[in-house]
Amino acid sequence: MATGGRRGAAAAPLLVAVAALLLGAAGHLYPGEVCPGMDIRNNLTRLHELENCSVIEGHLQILLMFKTRPEDFRDLSFPKLIMITDYLLLFRVYGLESLKDLFPNLTVIRGSRLFFNYALVIFEMVHLKELGLYNLMNITRGSVRIEKNNELCYLATIDWSRILDSVEDNYIVLNKDDNEECGDICPGTAKGKTNCPATVINGQFVERCWTHSHCQKVCPTICKSHGCTAEGLCCHSECLGNCSQPDDPTKCVACRNFYLDGRCVETCPPPYYHFQDWRCVNFSFCQDLHHKCKNSRRQGCHQYVIHNNKCIPECPSGYTMNSSNLLCTPCLGPCPKVCHLLEGEKTIDSVTSAQELRGCTVINGSLIINIRGGNNLAAELEANLGLIEEISGYLKIRRSYALVSLSFFRKLRLIRGETLEIGNYSFYALDNQNLRQLWDWSKHNLTITQGKLFFHYNPKLCLSEIHKMEEVSGTKGRQERNDIALKTNGDQASCENELLKFSYIRTSFDKI
């Protein structure tokens, strides 16, 4: 039985969820670079991206490699990797027998973001014989899940209580170790020597080791999670996991709180800001991140802002960003909400898709409305799209047979046209069989910064309504002859009103 693990408890099935942008060198404390989270699957090609990484700022997932063999891993080693800020997950990587050479110096898994409450997941690794993470000293947050690894031993010899604050939620089941077939031998045991430290858990006094050649490092209890030197002297209180010299914040392997210019500090002093819960960055760093993602459509890219001495992905609820200094300031009234469309555009074809934009005031991208039916549609669209004030790209209304009016965009005031449909149009209306009105132009103002209007096959939309939009939106004169079809717009509506004058002759039985 794995020490510190839980057996036999019912657990939810383990679901495996399925960018080499360097964020800056980590400095003297770390020998390499800070790398983003990685999802490495199918083959070993991307694994080489770990070569210079000291910190993975995010998670590391290595999974679904069915053609790899043990010899493929023999020359692979990433000794610079010290810390993973989120979680480490391995799933069905064939041929991998140990992690001792792959990650010989991995010391800390912070667990800032977890995989279903777990910071370390080893699942269905069919050839893994031992973990071998002999320098792993601290899992700051989260638990361990090690399950269905039929060859995995050296679990009962690990004292997880020396690595985690609590072992109650560890789930370590259905491994070879369960069948008591392992016969784990710690260093020196074969020669009758006791080389590794022994600890007591559940009444068992057991030597602690990761492999037959690597003991588990056990520091004096007084050192807590700070770690200790090879001689057993406690590291500085700002260290986490390990250090090369005692009581020196510049000799830590990793930091308990924050890293700044080669030393570990309790908090980031001005003019620095907390970033990702582990390091200090200056304003320029946060500003660069903001600008890199301002026009990016890459998933996970955030326009970072500053709030409460932190550089964070977005302002919290009730705050909006001051564009001059990136500071989050309290909103006066309802907060603006910028919604970034991942692929640059979004099609609204149902109430469900409209709900995804609920509360958005600025759309960074283009909207395509293609709704053919739905219950209580006008009210639903207004509830979900009615706060949109600005669209950076274009607005396209296409084959939306259920629409009679666009009044559900009740606050839309600006279409920038930074991206144009077919390279020309910022407003595009095609084949809307029941569209009769755009907006009530006596109450609604709309500016279209650039781009043209396109109207074709809107049989109940009168040309007068379209011409009014040209005047109000500032697009009059931009359109070419064929942009607004004269014969297919309003051709099934009563669009022309003329005053009919009647004269009559009164007659009676005795007068003409």
Rank of each mutant, 00 (worst) to 15 (best):
127 H>M: 01
178 D>Y: 11
280 C>Y: 01
177 D>I: 15
188 G>E: 04
215 C>M: 04
31 P>Q: 01
279 R>W: 06
44 L>Y: 10
122 I>V: 08
314 E>I: 03
195 N>D: 05
288 D>A: 09
180 E>T: 09
45 T>H: 06
115 F>R: 04
263 R>G: 02
201 I>K: 05
46 R>Q: 06
52 N>A: 10
213 S>K: 06
297 R>N: 12
156 A>I: 13
148 K>T: 04
136 L>R: 01
331 C>K: 04
137 M>W: 11
106 L>G: 00
40 I>P: 00
210 W>G: 12
300 G>E: 08
219 C>L: 02
92 R>V: 06
54 S>N: 15
95 G>R: 05
39 D>E: 14
324 S>Q: 15
301 C>L: 12
216 Q>P: 02
138 N>L: 12
35 C>W: 00
82 I>H: 07
150 N>W: 05
313 P>L: 10
132 G>A: 10
187 P>D: 05
332 L>I: 11
163 I>P: 00
269 P>T: 13
74 R>D: 05
139 I>W: 00
271 P>T: 13
204 Q>W: 08
155 L>D: 13
293 C>P: 01
134 Y>N: 15
249 P>R: 02
194 T>A: 12
240 L>H: 14
57 E>W: 05
265 V>K: 02
270 P>D: 03
160 W>A: 01
297 R>Q: 14
243 C>L: 00
139 I>G: 00
34 V>T: 07
242 N>M: 09
155 L>M: 14
198 A>E: 15
296 S>E: 04
292 K>P: 04
327 L>E: 06
329 T>V: 10
62 I>K: 00
234 C>P: 02
210 W>E: 08
137 M>Y: 04
110 R>Q: 13
128 L>S: 01
257 N>T: 07
164 L>G: 14
195 N>T: 07
37 G>S: 05
154 Y>M: 07
131 L>V: 12
100 K>S: 12
83 M>G: 06
313 P>N: 02
163 I>Q: 02
190 A>F: 11
192 G>L: 15
67 K>A: 04
222 I>Q: 09
174 L>I: 10
225 S>K: 10
237 S>K: 04
67 K>L: 05
224 K>W: 04
86 D>A: 03
151 E>L: 10
162 R>G: 04
132 G>E: 01
59 H>K: 15
256 R>A: 10
135 N>R: 06
240 L>Y: 11
336 P>T: 09
125 M>V: 01
74 R>Y: 10
310 K>L: 12
104 P>I: 01
108 V>P: 00
77 S>R: 10
148 K>M: 10
95 G>L: 02
242 N>I: 12
47 L>W: 15
223 C>L: 02
106 L>H: 01
78 F>T: 02
318 G>S: 12
63 L>A: 13
318 G>F: 05
293 C>Q: 02
195 N>E: 07
139 I>K: 00
35 C>R: 01
134 Y>R: 04
80 K>F: 05
269 P>V: 09
223 C>V: 01
95 G>N: 07
237 S>R: 10
169 D>K: 12
165 D>L: 13
33 E>T: 07
210 W>L: 05
32 G>Q: 10
33 E>M: 14
301 C>F: 04
183 G>M: 04
313 P>W: 09
336 P>Q: 15
86 D>P: 00
170 N>T: 09
281 V>P: 00
162 R>S: 08
148 K>L: 12
60 L>P: 00
98 S>I: 01
136 L>W: 00
179 N>R: 06
320 T>W: 10
176 K>A: 13
290 H>A: 04
184 D>E: 14
59 H>R: 11
76 L>E: 01
188 G>R: 06
57 E>Y: 11
140 T>E: 03
297 R>V: 08
95 G>M: 08
299 Q>G: 12
117 N>M: 06
242 N>S: 12
241 G>N: 06
216 Q>R: 03
94 Y>T: 13
129 K>T: 13
181 E>A: 10
115 F>M: 04
309 N>F: 13
149 N>S: 10
29 L>M: 15
334 P>K: 15
34 V>R: 14
302 H>Y: 10
46 R>Y: 09
207 E>L: 11
144 V>C: 04
321 M>E: 03
325 N>K: 05
122 I>R: 00
159 D>R: 10
94 Y>V: 09
245 Q>L: 08
194 T>W: 15
225 S>A: 03
280 C>T: 00
99 L>W: 00
336 P>N: 09
235 C>T: 01
287 Q>N: 06
214 H>C: 11
145 R>Y: 15
98 S>V: 01
98 S>T: 07
110 R>C: 10
83 M>R: 00
151 E>C: 07
93 V>S: 02
159 D>H: 15
73 F>T: 15
234 C>G: 01
48 H>K: 02
121 V>D: 00
65 M>S: 08
274 H>V: 09
189 T>C: 09
135 N>T: 10
259 Y>R: 04
325 N>L: 11
130 E>C: 03
277 D>N: 14
300 G>M: 13
302 H>N: 14
278 W>T: 02
297 R>G: 09
333 G>T: 03
205 F>M: 13
177 D>N: 14
38 M>F: 02
74 R>Q: 06
328 C>V: 03
210 W>P: 01
239 C>N: 00
120 L>Q: 00
62 I>T: 01
125 M>L: 05
50 L>Y: 06
308 N>H: 13
43 N>W: 11
106 L>V: 02
234 C>W: 00
143 S>A: 11
276 Q>E: 13
243 C>H: 00
164 L>D: 15
188 G>L: 15
307 H>W: 11
284 S>A: 11
242 N>D: 11
229 T>V: 07
90 L>N: 00
231 E>L: 05
78 F>R: 02
74 R>P: 00
87 Y>S: 01
299 Q>L: 09
311 C>S: 01
196 C>W: 01
158 I>S: 04
58 G>R: 00
128 L>C: 04
224 K>P: 08
180 E>P: 06
159 D>M: 06
146 I>S: 02
212 H>F: 12
328 C>G: 01
306 I>A: 05
105 N>F: 05
143 S>G: 13
249 P>M: 03
226 H>M: 14
78 F>M: 15
317 S>P: 06
56 I>R: 15
280 C>F: 01
58 G>A: 01
165 D>P: 13
117 N>A: 09
218 V>Q: 09
